[in-house]
Nucleic acid binder design. Structure first.
Length: 343
DNA sequence: ACATCTACGACGCTTAACGC
DNA sequence: GCGTTAAGCGTCGTAGATGT
């Protein structure tokens, strides 16, 4: 915190006033402002904590603003532009239709994808919330009516006050601008993955437009949908890791990965067969890995390594199965070195 | 006083185990 | 054999404890 505070005031000095999030994109070598919100929940809460300002404290105590800021902060850094661009348009115009959303998105993306726009409408209106998110966000975000996305009454009221709308637009603008810097306008399709970018398990739920509750994307290292299997790997296990989950997962080379299934999966089971015959069954296997589960108590995202193809498995092993996969994309040398060197 | 750490429950889903 | 229940998983949020 002490260090964060210092970084904040250093940057404030450069800008000459309390910075906006977008200011961090205008200065070469500026720190990643997301670490301030990672620490405090939102950028607004961080600034309010380090600045002795009554005005900021009032903003922070606003009952309807903070949840909305929190919702979009959790989406940032954006892994795709759809949700933020649509939300921004809705905030500015009061509502947005599917076709207006497509027009707006075509300013940012080479090929706006209609089913994904439709999905983003459902997402923004809370269709994929779990029960705790419903109580947290319900009636505070957006409402879908057929082709239209409307602001919920509380959000609509909030937007009439400039000082409340400003931090929200700053956050969305920051998200969209930094997305463009990282991803440009390329079409990534569905699931919307870019090689060697970072994703959380939850991000993956959004990227593949799942109809399930997003918070269900967690658990035993393997998340499955009809057409896609997502493998999540921690390469470095803590010394006190439980033996039951101490999987022997490792890169055997820049194109080969040894993976162990969840400790309940046998080769005979439905899942086991799909892990082996995924090509025949039309299932894509996606590999995600990270070196450490958390650093300084902050959960780390996974890096996307693209699709993999079954090579062989050890028939002697069950629960867990041990399978060797071939990567479609060779891991870049520097990344491979970083992941495979000992701590 | 405020920051940081620790322990633990909620959450959704799959698979194994159980009861009939 | 079929439906139901329980266990286990990782992440996040938070309450309570400890540190500065």
């Amino acid at each position: 915190m002490k260090y964060l505070r210092q970084e904040y005031f250093d940057f404030k000095k450069i800008i000459g006033r309390i910075p906006h999030l977008v200011d961090f994109l205008k200065v070469d070598g500026a720190v990643d402002p997301m670490k301030f919100s990672t620490h405090s929940g939102t950028w607004l809460e961080f600034v309010s904590r380090v600045e002795d300002s009554e005005e900021l404290a009032t903003l922070c105590s606003h009952q309807d603003l903070l949840p909305v800021l929190r919702f979009f902060t959790d989406l940032t850094p954006l892994r795709r532009a759809y949700e933020a661009v649509i939300a921004k348009k809705a905030l500015e115009a009061g509502q947005v239709s599917l076709s207006e959303a497509r027009d707006e998105l075509s300013k940012y993306l080479a090929i706006p994808h209609l089913p994904t726009i439709d999905y983003a409408f459902d997402f923004l209106s809370g269709r994929f919330f779990d029960s705790s998110e419903k109580t947290k966000y319900q009636d505070r975000l957006f409402i879908r009516q057929g082709q239209q996305l409307l602001l919920a009454p509380k959000l609509s009221q909030l937007c009439r006050i400039e000082s409340l709308l400003a931090p929200l637009l700053d956050l969305l603008n920051y998200g969209i601008l930094s997305y463009q810097l990282e991803f440009e306008d390329a079409d990534y399709g569905v699931p919307h993955f870019k090689l060697w970018e970072n994703y959380t398990m939850r991000d993956v739920a959004l990227m593949c437009n799942t109809l399930r509750t997003h918070s269900s994307f967690r658990g035993q290292g393997l998340i499955t949908t009809d057409k896609d299997f997502f493998m999540f790997v921690d390469l470095h296990k803590e010394a006190d890791v439980k033996e039951s989950i101490n999987y022997q997962d490792k890169f055997e080379g820049p194109r080969h990965f040894q993976w162990e299934s969840p400790n309940t999966t046998s080769p005979q089971s439905g899942t086991g067969q799909k892990l082996i015959q995924h090509e025949k069954q039309g299932i894509s296997m996606h590999l995600f890995a990270r070196k450490f589960r958390e650093i300084e108590n902050i959960a780390q995202p996974f890096t996307y390594f693209g699709k993999v193809i079954y090579r062989h498995h050890d028939p002697e092993r069950s629960k867990p199965m041990r399978i060797s996969y071939l990567l479609e994309n060779e891991v870049p040398a520097d990344l491979f070195y970083e992941l495979t060197t000992k701590v």
